[in-house]
Amino acid sequence: EAHAAIDTFTKYLDIDEDFATVLVEEGFSTLEELAYVPMKELLEIEGLDEPTVEALRERAKNALATIAQ
């Protein structure tokens, strides 16, 4: 499951495998979680700032909209 989540994140969020791995290690496994989890939870991840989190959430929401079509 972790590998599938990493693949999904790299494909749809335009991030590298290392960043995707950090997200999975922090407990995220779906685009929905990244799109809708409280921003505070993402900001608790070391190295993430508000602009990065906002961009990540926007990419996740856009990916979900694209997949739904």
Results as ranks from 00 to 15, higher is better:
L43I: 07
K40F: 11
E46V: 14
E17K: 15
A5N: 05
K61C: 05
Y12K: 02
L23H: 00
V37F: 10
D7L: 14
E54T: 14
T30E: 04
E46T: 15
L42G: 04
E1V: 13
E58Q: 11
R59S: 12
N62W: 09
D7Y: 12
D14Y: 11
A68V: 08
T52C: 07
T30C: 04
L13K: 00
E50A: 12
R57L: 11
E54L: 11
A68G: 09
E26M: 15
D49Y: 04
L34C: 02
F9A: 00
H3G: 10
T8Q: 06
D14R: 07
N62I: 14
R57Q: 15
I45G: 02
A63C: 05
A65L: 14
T52F: 13
L31N: 00
L34Y: 01
L31T: 00
A65Q: 12
E44T: 14
Y36L: 08
E44A: 14
A68N: 11
E50H: 09
L64I: 10
P51C: 11
I45N: 02
A60D: 01
L31R: 00
G47M: 06
T21K: 15
E25I: 11
G27N: 02
A2S: 11
D18V: 13
E50M: 13
L48T: 05
L56A: 01
A55G: 07
K61H: 07
L56R: 00
T10N: 04
E32P: 03
I45R: 05
A20E: 00
A2T: 13
T30W: 03
T10D: 01
Q69H: 10
K11R: 10
A63M: 05
Q69N: 11
F28P: 01
V22C: 07
L23C: 02
F9Q: 00
V24A: 08
D18C: 08
I6R: 08
S29E: 08
D18S: 13
T10I: 15
P38K: 06
T21N: 09
M39H: 07
E46M: 14
H3R: 15
G47L: 05
E41H: 13
K11C: 07
A5P: 06
T21W: 15
T21L: 14
E44P: 05
H3S: 12
I15G: 01
E26H: 15
H3A: 14
Q69I: 09
E32L: 10
A2F: 14
T10Q: 09
I67A: 06
A60F: 03
V53M: 10
Y12E: 04
L56G: 00
A20P: 01
E44I: 11
P51S: 13
A63V: 07
V53K: 04
F9N: 01
V22K: 15
T8S: 07
E17I: 14
Y36C: 07
R57T: 06
A5M: 09
G47Y: 06
E41Q: 14
E17A: 13
D49M: 04
T66C: 08
E58F: 06
